[in-house]
């Protein structure tokens, strides 16, 4: 399986080459185009209950689509819904990543997707909800963001502060606490940041350069109100 990011920047696509018999799973609706040798199946990853819990708990789609090169080698073009970058990483079987609910684009057959419950404080204040996706296993994993993706590398014990709505993915060797952005409650919210996550290494944190929630609020003011 080979993958390549086309048109890097705001409107990228990822091209995945599949050998005969190989398959990948992708977010439902992510497929843009594919070779005629590719079959598209819809699959409830993790069984019915797993899919149900993913749908209701993380807000992810109920079905993932499986793209299978059943009739010979071929390629697939995948793209996310929102404008923003795509990154492709290789899971090695040991590294695990937590991914916020809209961050998953596609993964190789060996990538395991779980929804996992967060602690109360992270769930309430982290802005990711109580359930997030946990990616483990082995193989290619494509994530997408809203805006550009920035990688923050943390050495053991090194700390970094991230606005909670800018999170895309973070390795499970990191740990984080939710904090007020400033020392005072009022200033915390008037500064526009509210809560932030204080990450502590080692590990990697991927953040997105735009905040989908704020963008939504900004767009809303231009939408004509129908009577």
């Amino acid at each position: 399986m080979k993958s390549e990011i086309l048109y890097p920047g705001a409107f990228p696509m990822v091209r995945v080459e599949l050998a005969e018999g190989e398959h990948i799973k992708a977010e439902s609706g992510a497929m843009v185009a594919c070779s005629p040798t590719i079959d598209i199946e819809s699959k409830m990853e993790g069984g019915f209950l797993g899919a149900l819990s993913r749908k209701f708990l993380t807000g992810e789609k109920f079905f993932f689509q499986t793209l299978r090169a059943s009739r010979g080698a071929g390629e697939v073009l995948l793209a996310p819904t929102v404008p923003g970058e795509i990154i492709v990483m290789e899971l090695d079987g040991v590294s695990e990543y937590m991914v916020q609910k809209d961050g998953f684009l596609a993964g190789a057959a060996g990538v395991v997707i779980d929804s996992q419950m967060q602690s109360m404080s992270r769930g309430l204040l982290g802005g990711e909800g109580f359930f997030i996706l946990k990616m483990s296993g082995k193989g290619m994993l494509a994530l997408n963001s809203f805006g550009a993706i920035h990688k923050i590398e943390l050495k053991p014990g090194q700390e970094y502060i991230v606005d909670n709505s800018h999170l895309v993915a973070w390795s499970t060797t990191t740990t984080y606490n939710i904090e007020k952005a400033t020392s005072g409650w009022v200033a915390s919210f008037t500064s526009g940041e509210g809560f932030v996550c204080r990450f502590r290494g080692p590990g990697v944190v991927y953040i997105q350069s735009r905040n989908p929630g704020s963008f939504g609020a900004w767009v809303r003011q231009f939408i004509p109100v129908s009577q």
């Binding site: 090695d92 040991v94 590398e153 943390l154």
Partner: peptide
């Protein structure tokens, strides 16, 4: 031979070296 741990250190990538 499949790695079962991640090792961090100055000469390793920030995401850790599988070992």
């Amino acid at each position: 031979n499949t790695p079962n741990a991640l090792c961090f250190g100055d000469e390793f990538p920030a995401s850790g070296a599988p070992c």
